[in-house]
């Protein structure tokens, strides 16, 4: 094989490798959640919770998002199982009344206005249409934070190597277009 071509191909392959595999690893900081949580256990037939039992709407229509630790305390005032994570939940957060510093995969930037009320109550979207199978996950995956923008990997940027969880602006626009809804800038960016 031509020696020059070999070097050229080596450089090409190295760049592709770094760009597609090394770069995402460098760009995204991987952070573990403060404790593990199983949505599957909580939504199982045995426990029988529904999404909106914890992720509720307030009386004024605003969405409460991730429940506060007081909501957890309604059931977990004391450990119910031998789980190390449950023990951590009770001792580190519930007893002292500290909120759990969850890393929120779907947290949008400050310039984005998203109303759960419109999407859930009026458009009647199911939770998993945006959040995927998160509601039935056995454990919490690591949170990936973009070192430059500070955003969650779930919410912004074109997919890298097929990484997509359906919470990016392109997904919002696609869904709005498919349903014939307006996708003007000021609809979401106030």
């Amino acid at each position: 094989m031509n020696r020059g071509l070999l070097f050229f191909a080596a450089g090409l392959l190295a760049a592709l490798g770094i760009g597609w595999m090394g770069f995402p690893r460098m760009l995204y900081e991987r952070i573990d959640q403060p404790l593990q949580f199983s949505h599957r256990v909580h939504t199982s037939e045995k426990v029988g919770l529904k999404c909106d039992d914890c992720h509720a709407f307030r009386s004024d229509g605003s969405f409460a998002g991730i429940p506060s630790v007081s909501k957890c305390a309604e059931c977990h005032a004391a450990p119910l199982t031998a789980s190390a994570d449950e023990k951590l939940l009770v001792e580190k957060y519930i007893v002292p009344g500290e909120e759990i510093p969850w890393r929120v995969y779907s947290r949008q930037p400050d310039n984005t206005y998203f109303s759960h009320l419109f999407h859930v109550r009026q458009a009647r979207l199911k939770c998993d249409e945006c959040h995927g199978s998160h509601g039935s996950s056995e454990s919490l995956r690591e949170f990936q934070r973009n070192r430059l923008s500070g955003y969650s990997r779930d919410i912004w940027g074109q997919n890298i190597a097929g990484f997509s969880r359906g919470m990016k602006m392109t997904e919002c626009s696609r869904c709005h277009a498919a349903r014939g809804r307006s996708d003007a800038c000021l609809d979401c960016h106030k």
Binding site: F7, G11, L12, A14, A15, L16, W20
Partner: peptide
């Protein structure tokens, strides 16, 4: 090698 890398770079994110 550098030329190949430079070209490859444009086909990465």
């Amino acid at each position: 090698l550098a030329g190949g890398s430079a070209l490859g770079l444009w086909f990465t994110p």
